[in-house]
Design a protein around this nucleic acid. Structure first.
Lengths: 125, 125
DNA sequence: CTAAACCCTGACATTGGCGTGAGGGTCAAG
DNA sequence: CTTGACCCTCACGCCAATGTCAGGGTTTAG
């Protein structure tokens, strides 16, 4: 199938499909006229890519184990687990940072509201 | 004082100080030779800017109330509270997203480990 | 006088997945 | 033949704060 059909079937934009190819995640054949020719397997492949992107992995990280997971179960691919663990650590760190800022904001909002009630300023609901 | 001294006193890079000025957060006088001339107040001002940046606010948002908070208490500046609340909502949303991904990662890690022990693959500590 | 140490204004680079437009082939239906 | 729907390859834009050159003045200590 050509790129437009693959885009329709997967819901991924043509631009993204070409980008994935550039990043080494897809390798379609070429017709004589230069058009990309995708096999049916490409549909699953693109969905798999999307799945990993939604986990916050970069195209580079995905490229590191995509070929393996397409042919085997994830558990068989040694590369996957360390990437997952690193990502988990990163996310935990991000959540930690955000949680700190969040509490800071809450404290500041509270103290503003408190100061306003003390000085008689009204809080609009 | 000149920009280098302000940078030393605040720990903020010269590049950033110039950027803040460009964003309307600082407005130093100019000497005859074109050098920026900062008053002592600029030190507090820069620290205040840093404080808000660390809360995740953009220079544009900060510009909206910086002059006010430099002269009054935050509680007196009407612009601050809505910005804080919006930011808090944004952060809550980010945390929600990250938490979802986090759980997804944990589930996947667990299932990989479980599959490996079932199929006899070893988990290196 | 000179070299070091500052200061100035641009302006490009970074990050990363993807939108979008330019300029131009290919192909099938009418 | 023509029109329209596809396809191709660049290549810039985005977002935001900051790093980092380049090319050039000024000042200051020795």
């Amino acid at each position: 199938m050509k790129i437009g059909e693959l885009a329709d079937r997967t819901g991924v934009s043509i631009r993204s499909l070409r980008y994935y190819e550039q990043q080494g995640l897809l390798a379609p054949l070429r017709q004589e006229n230069g058009y990309r020719e995708y096999s049916l397997l490409a549909v699953d492949q693109v969905r798999t890519i999307q799945l990993y992107l939604n986990l916050g992995l970069s195209t580079e990280e995905i490229a590191g184990f995509l070929q393996c997971v397409l042919k085997n179960k994830e558990a068989f691919c040694e590369e996957v687990l360390p990437v997952y663990r690193q990502k988990l650590a990163d996310i935990d760190e991000q959540i930690r940072l955000l949680t700190g800022i969040r509490q800071n904001l809450i404290d500041r909002i509270d103290s503003i509201l408190q100061e306003r009630t003390q000085t008689g300023q009204e809080e609009r609901k």
